[in-house]
Each structure stands twice: as structure tokens, then as C-alpha cells.
Amino acid sequence: MAVLQFREALRAAMTEEMERDDTIFLMGEEVAQYNGAYKVSEGMLDQFGPERVIDTPISESGFSGLGVGAAMNGLRPIIEFMTWNFSFVAIDQILNNAAKIRYMSGGQFKVPIVFRGANGAAGQLAATHNTSVESIYATVPGLKVVAPSNPDDAKGLLKASIRDDNPVVFLESEVLYGMKGEVSDDKDYIIPIGKARIAREGKDITIVAHGNVYWRAMNVADRLVEAGYDPEVIDLRTIRPLDINTVTESVRKTNRCVIMDESNPFASISSEVAYQIQERVFDHLDSPVIRVTAKDTPAPFAKNLMDHYMPSEEDAYQACLRAMYVT
């Protein structure tokens, strides 16, 4: 084990995989000479050269499509979006071409590609630069969607994504890139896609979260512990395929659930998880599932408004108390 930043864990995953398999290449804006807009790919140009670490012009549609074609023709591209907000000008390449070509070709062409970059809110960037994209991509059959919350998961899940023969949407968080944590240095350290993690075991209430907001959920859990309760926290880690069994097993035990989600609430991951809980374990619920999400608005700029926009720990704490009929 070594202590690495989140960005260093991502870099370790890419570097180890590129050393292992020379069909893997990294392409995106500023990934090479600039060493990555968020320094995720720092030093990779020096190690692998310009044939495998490739700067692009600002052409998300062009280089995303290029990645899809390269994957169809035998390579394993890693396509970096500086942030996922910019994926929207390339969305057709992801949700039509990457996701559906295997299906439409009757399985003749696979598309083993990873699209990765910073997702979600990152402060006062206003509405177009603060989007949480998970529900948009998770709704598309053919894609896998992964959202790690910590450096060790980032490494293990990115390595799994690179080795996966399906297109993977890999969601990082700009505000987590500097976070440090213990990371496995095993060259074959794989965390399977589609497995949630029980981050804290408990019996009174289940709190579900993923990505950056997972850390807010852990703070809420700490407050609940201080108040004398025993919460369970589940980090989804993968959005699609969703490990609903881990969630429902937890709810069978706690009979209560609060979901924290950084996305806008309508047709979101939180709504999907809530639906599946009531569908599968309705009889085990002692109270309605409560969602604590970003506000149902575009992300604002003013600092106080942006703070208000985010799913708050106080709201989540109060939601847990309500779910337990304490208040």
C-alpha cells in the first residue's frame, strides 16, 4: 500500500495498464504536454510518448468518435474529458455509437473504451460547469457507469474499466482529485464493476451515496453516531449495473433509507434507487425512502446560492431523523 492522491491513483491505474497492454492509449485535451488540466496524466507523455498520450484540439465530438472507431478496430482507448460538462457536445458518440454499435452489429464489433473525467459540482462555476451526468449516461443500455469516491476505489475501478470489453463512463470529481488515501500497489488490483461497498455497518438506517457526496453521507453518519444511532452507509461505487442487492439487503436490516445524490432530483440515480427499493423490499420499509439531492435548478454562481444548491448534511441528518420517526 502507498498513500496517493486520487489523481495519482488514477494515473497509477492508467500507467500500469498501459505498461501491460500496448493497445491502450490516452487521448484528450491537454493530457500530454500540459500534463493534464487536473494533472491526472502528469508524466505520462514522457513515459509513453506522443503516439500513446495524445493531445487533441477542442473537438470532443471528433476525438470521442475517434476513440469509438479505434476501439472497434482493435485498440483500447482512454478518452479524457476535461470535465464531463464538455461531453455534451459529444454525447451522440457516447450514447449512440459507443453504447449501441455492439448491439446493432449483432455482436460483431465490440467497443472497449473508457471515457473519463471530472463530474459534478466543483464550486462557483455556474450552471454549465457543475453538471452531474450520471443519470444521463446510466439510462443508456450498453454503457457501464462507474463513480469512485476514494483513491483506492479509483485505482481498482479504473483498472477494471480499462480491462472491460464494454464502453465505460468513468466519473471522477474535481474536488476529490487532491484527496489522499491508502492505495493498493498490486499491479492486478481490480475492484469489480457492479459491486457496492458497505462503508459503515449499522442497523438503524441505510444511507446510500456515491462519488463526492459519499463523504457528506459519512459526516451525516458521524453525527448520527454522536446522537446515539447506528447508521449503515453504502457507497454505490458503480451506477450501472446498479448493485441493488447490497442496498436491499441493508434495508431489510434497517427498514429505513435516505439517499444522498449530487444530481438534480428528477429522473435521477436517487429516484431509480428509491423505486427499486420499494419494488423489491416494500414490506420491509418502516418509513418512506427520502432523497436529499441538489436543488431542482441549474447550479447558481453566488457562493451562498451554490452552497444552498448542494445536498446538505443538515438536510440529510434531519431526513434520517424523520425516517426513524425521531422528529
Binding site: 471528433g62 468518435g65 476513440g67 472497434m72 478496430n73 482493435g74 452489429s105 460483431q108 464489433f109
Partner: peptide
């Protein structure tokens, strides 16, 4: 589609396959 004949499709969204062609060439 035909893997054997290297026909990479047949695409229905106008123009969207052309960047994909770039990637096939890249490979």
C-alpha cells in the same frame, strides 16, 4: 455490418460515423 469484409456500418445518425472512421484509420 461485416467484420469479415471490414464494413464498420451502416450508420443512421447523419455524419456521426465520420469521426468513428477517423478512429478506424487511427487504429
Amino acid at each position: 455490418f461485416s467484420r469479415e469484409k471490414r464494413l464498420f456500418g451502416g450508420h443512421g445518425i447523419v455524419g456521426a460515423h465520420v469521426p468513428v472512421g477517423g478512429g478506424i484509420a487511427f487504429a
